[in-house]
Amino acid sequence: MKITLSGNLLRFSKFQREIDVPGPTVAEGLTRLCGDMPQLRPVLLDGAGHLRKVHRLFVNRDQLMNDELGRPVGEDDEVMILTAIAGG
């Protein structure tokens, strides 16, 4: 799958916007991504390894909820992560 990052997240991927990762499911792709880019891990995942709720994740054009990350994906699928965070 191809994972696309944007906004706040880019500085944690050294401004690499699109990253190809293997993985039969979205969840495994995210784990692989965080393994390849450890600085992304605390930003994307919480201490228990779950995707933080502030991120919106889309597979192709479908938004996935956090309990749907087991969805199977192929190498042509595109995963986009969008994040909006405001200050206090």
Partner: peptide
Amino acid sequence: SADGLSYGQRFL
């Protein structure tokens, strides 16, 4: 104990 970031966003 985890993902306080999301918890704080709710207040904001």
